[in-house]
Amino acid sequence: MSGLGMAFRIGTELVAALAVGVGIGLLLDHWLDTGPWFLVVFFFLGAAAGMLNVYRAASGIGLAPGFPQRPEKGTEPGEEKEEHDGPAGTGRPGN
């Protein structure tokens, strides 16, 4: 994924997980009539999930829950370009 595409992605990942957490908490509280407790618990779970999403998106280890890595999929366009740029940059000082 391109850098700009990444920039557009990450902001919403954080907010969306928090919103989903708070939503689940409110629904459970409304359903079970249990004061603010589920809201409090799921607020923190949502915040944690949001940070997890951002971490996974930013470090490129796949976005899905529970994903250590994506084996043969390490060839994202961005990464490939960096590899090409490397040798070109180091070969220049001769001039």
């Binding site: 919403t12 689940i24 944690a48």
Partner: peptide, 22 residues
């Protein structure tokens, strides 16, 4: 497990909010 489930459920929300908000 609850964190991963919230993270999984947040996918359609983040997908739709991103496009709509932009």
């Amino acid at each position: 497990i609850p964190i991963e489930i919230v993270s999984y459920l947040s996918r359609p929300v983040s997908l739709s909010i991103r496009l709509f908000a932009n």
